[in-house]
Design a protein around this nucleic acid. Structure first.
Lengths: 188, 188
DNA sequence: ATTATCATTTGATGTAGGTCAAATAATGAA
DNA sequence: TTCATTATTTGACCTACATCAAATGATAAT
């Protein structure tokens, strides 16, 4: 979902072989079936999830209602951020919306590897920076754009999203009701 | 504004003397008069600003209207984040709301220092993480709380804010109109 | 003190988007 | 194919908050 991720992929692709090997050594490929959870509320987020192929979402419950905070596609990185950083129980769920192949990297092992491979530390900072910029942009959109414009921006950035994800999740992600999203789509 | 900053202050306070000395060597104390700008739109944010004493705000213009994105008090750190990270022109202004003493650290010098002093790199990551968590929390508040509750949360966290900052800025920061804020305050 | 400027309140009215309810449409299992 | 479940649309109504306008209150300069 984070459009800056191209740059992170570039950076990762250009890592020297030793660093890349070290990263691979602490990463495991896994497959999650549609509907399954990479992470549930109250669990500590001990892995970062590189989505190789598939779609996932992150959400939390607010008095019974699901609020989707992020949608993930190929090459996105999913974590419950504060849970991951502080290794404390997560407020959020991360769920596969399709069968999804991910590369998961262990938090502890990554912290250790960073000390040996400075480029991994650099990568960590870079990913965090881009995530913060993405959050700033999301806040910006909520402050300056109405529901229709937020929707248009979303399908502009991710045209395929409509084919693949139930509208409830998209509506929630956009911060509007399902009905409003439906009406926006009906117009024009 | 970032309540996690206590932890960063703790971390900074516990730095070894060499690291602290290196940090001091690239930092300069400056005083900004009320109303003056630490940073203007279109300038590159080449410094980070540690607010030692005073109040400041960050904002941008959206078709002529100011949107306040952050309020800073003693011991907060102010930067225009994407401008600082990517060293590109800033969309945002940073302005002193009172006479303000700041300690400013040069971006380039800090990047260099990080290579020599790993703890500075750690500090950099830590600050970025806390900023991202703060942004997440702000998004959370916009998603789950109405104007009244956001206001109550704000004065709970920063009781002194009312005495010191014109309501327009607070309203804008809360994402509501000046009039609505006034009405919220009138009740109870 | 007096006036000009800025900050805050109060009132009247408009609107984007929410909520509730019911009707279709699509999907999937037997 | 048929039924059951889930997703989407449509309609009627409601509400939180915006906008515009004008009054009042506070600050600061002359």
């Amino acid at each position: 979902m984070n459009s800056h991720l191209d740059k992170i992929n570039d950076f990762t692709a250009r890592l020297d072989i030793e660093t890349l090997t070290a990263l691979n050594a602490i990463s495991v490929e896994k497959i999650f079936k549609k509907g399954n959870f990479l992470l549930r509320q109250d669990e500590v987020c001990k892995k970062s999830y590189w989505i190789e192929k598939g779609i996932a979402r992150k959400y939390y419950l607010n008095d019974g209602k699901e609020i989707t905070t992020e949608l993930y596609f190929d090459n996105d990185i999913a974590v419950s951020f504060d849970s991951y950083c502080l290794q404390k129980p997560s407020r959020e769920y991360i769920q596969a919306l399709t069968d999804t192949t991910i590369l998961q990297t262990d938090f502890g092992a990554f912290q250790t590897a960073k000390q040996q491979f400075p480029k991994l530390a650099k990568l960590d900072l870079m990913m965090t920076e881009y995530y913060a910029m993405w959050l700033e942009d999301r806040l910006f959109q909520f402050h300056t754009m109405d529901a229709t414009h937020r929707y248009l921006k979303l399908i502009e950035d991710h045209p395929y999203i409509i084919q693949n994800i139930p509208l409830t999740f998209i509506a929630s992600y956009l911060g509007i009701s399902l009905e409003t999203l439906s009406r926006i789509r009906a117009k024009k």
